[in-house]
Design a protein around this nucleic acid. Structure first.
Lengths: 331, 331
DNA sequence: ATGAAAGCGCTAACAC
DNA sequence: GTGTTAGCGCTTTCAT
């Protein structure tokens, strides 16, 4: 182990100045004589001085750390959000703490409470908390939401209105007159928005929609969903997310049902895997990496202002047409 | 925003005791009169007191935070490591900071330096630093490695000796007399270990092996690898990782080559997607979640002891046989 | 068992 | 432009 690490005082002594000058040399370069600053920095470098973040935080009350909370770290949908947030944090010189809420609102609330003094703010993706819980927490520490809109705080959401229209138009262009929405968890905010959008878009097109589910938004949710879809006689299905869609397609393949020959399948998210499953999946791509980065930016800009509110940023979505959708077979 | 948060002094005042008593009530319950402690805790609860981690860290020098560094957060291989580490940290009451080193040794070194004062230790997965750089860094802050063995520090690695034997035995059982190893990045420690293991196992079986590459360990590395393999006339290939294997299989499909009919394909990692690509991929599964958790445990046990060294933990691997491997076609 | 008081390393007024 | 000096909130001797 190294000996005691050099402190501000060590650098100050070595450079023959006061500690405040050293501090300023780092944090307010303008307010220090250029030559003095050079000397201080040189001494700091020579001594291998690194500021102690705990001490900085204690004084300033700011930790230069933010937390990102996601329901499941291993879900590839959140990988993009995590990466984007990590980039955004790095750009802003912030440290990113990652928390997995295990899809539980209790765990989420506990994590917020545990970390609120250790971080300057939270980015919460797909929060399971109620609007009220979120707003209460936001009075203590700034919060920005990803894929969840709650009045009074910064939100970054995907444009599901446009996205669901794109999906419906695509299916209509292939001659489908109706489709089934294979729903995910009932509490999912994005699930509700997707379903609303699909209903509205279908109504405009004069198409008929039904909803099936809820199902687990995992590969294992696929078989039950597939069987329900088969029973319904649908020519097309739109699934809550890609993973569920892939699980559903696997089951359809097992049962000898051709995709897209007999049934067209559409997913949401364009996760890793959507372009190499079989058949490749037509899906609505979200800019998850952008979402993570923007959420951090939103948080950073509102932190210094100490304002609780924040505008909602809507990120574009785009339909990626692949092999799982095709024309209706007239029988 | 909330008013000033209650401090130790507020609680002490409210309970009519000294701050040191409040501090002890939390950290050394034994050394405080039972009734006093009850009263203090009640007041703390009533005021909504939460200790300020920065102040705790400043005094004690310990932050109760550890950092996990990975080359690429979006790589599904690391998702398991991240999840495991998150769990391990949560179990130990530690906060986990996540860093993405962007597959760059410079970024990794910078991140270590930037965080070393803010955390009590590092878990570094697939480190790109040299052994010397790692050992130097470890003298300042404890470090544990995942999938990288460096003498003198705690390491968690997969059992590639057993794993590569499993792969070779599997191919031999299907009648393959030779195979090609499709290599990843030259600097990859695990890549080197895999190749060593395969060579040794093949030699024992009297099989012939050649190496091709290096290739990008991504889907986009697949086409070049596939074409090289075709030119070689191999009956079986073992790829650096699953992603590369899937990219390679896609290219083979494009070129009308049947898998496993004409060529058998084996991957490493068993990442998300290996069970739904087409054909499903035979691959060597690693216990990545265990690895992450164990690495944190190793770090935690060595931190209090302030000992730099640490034993290497070897985690079992197992071959998952799926649809991408089959018998040699005699032509 | 409890209190008083000295810092931990740094920032921010406020002087000079 | 630079130095002096109070703390930030907590832990930890050292008394009592």
């Amino acid at each position: 182990m190294a000996d005691r690490r050099p402190t501000l005082a060590d650098v100050a002594h070595a450079a023959g100045v006061a500690t405040s000058t050293v501090s300023r040399a780092f944090s307010r370069p303008q307010r220090v004589n250029h030559r003095t600053r050079e000397r201080v920095l040189a001494e700091a470098e020579r001594l291998g001085y690194v500021p102690n973040p705990a001490a900085q935080a204690l004084e300033s009350g700011r930790t230069r750390t933010i937390a990102l909370l996601v329901p499941d770290i291993t879900n590839p949908y959140f990988s993009g959000v995590i990466k984007g947030a990590e980039r955004g944090a790095a750009n802003a010189g912030l440290t990113l703490v990652l928390g997995d809420t295990a899809e539980s609102s209790a765990a989420e609330a506990q994590l917020v409470r545990r970390l609120e003094r250790a971080v300057d703010g939270f980015v919460i993706a797909a929060s399971r908390l109620t609007d009220d819980e979120l707003r209460t927490a936001a009075t203590r520490t700034p919060i920005t939401l990803v894929n969840r809109a709650t009045a009074g705080m910064g939100c970054v959401v995907a444009d599901y209105d446009s996205g669901t229209h794109q999906i419906v138009d695509h299916l209509a262009s292939y001659g489908h007159r109706s489709f089934v929405f294979v729903g995910g968890p009932a509490e999912s905010w994005s699930g509700a928005r997707r379903w609303q959008g699909l209903q509205a878009a279908a109504a405009e097109r004069g198409m008929e929609v039904r909803r099936s589910g809820p199902y687990l938004p995992t590969l294992s949710g696929g078989p039950a969903a597939a069987d329900a879809v088969l029973a319904s006689g649908a020519t097309a299905v739109v699934c809550h997310n890609d993973i569920l869609a892939i699980g559903l397609m696997r089951r359809l393949a097992e049962r000898g049902v051709s995709v897209p020959g007999e049934i067209s399948v559409v997913g949401f998210d364009d996760v890793f895997g959507a372009d190499f499953c079989h058949p490749t999946l037509t899906t609505l791509a979200e800019r998850t990496e952008d979402a993570g980065r923007r959420a951090v930016e939103l948080l950073v800009t509102q932190v210094p202002l100490r304002q609780a509110g924040g505008p909602t940023r809507v990120l574009p979505t785009q339909l990626v047409v692949r092999g799982s959708t095709g024309p209706v077979t007239s029988m």
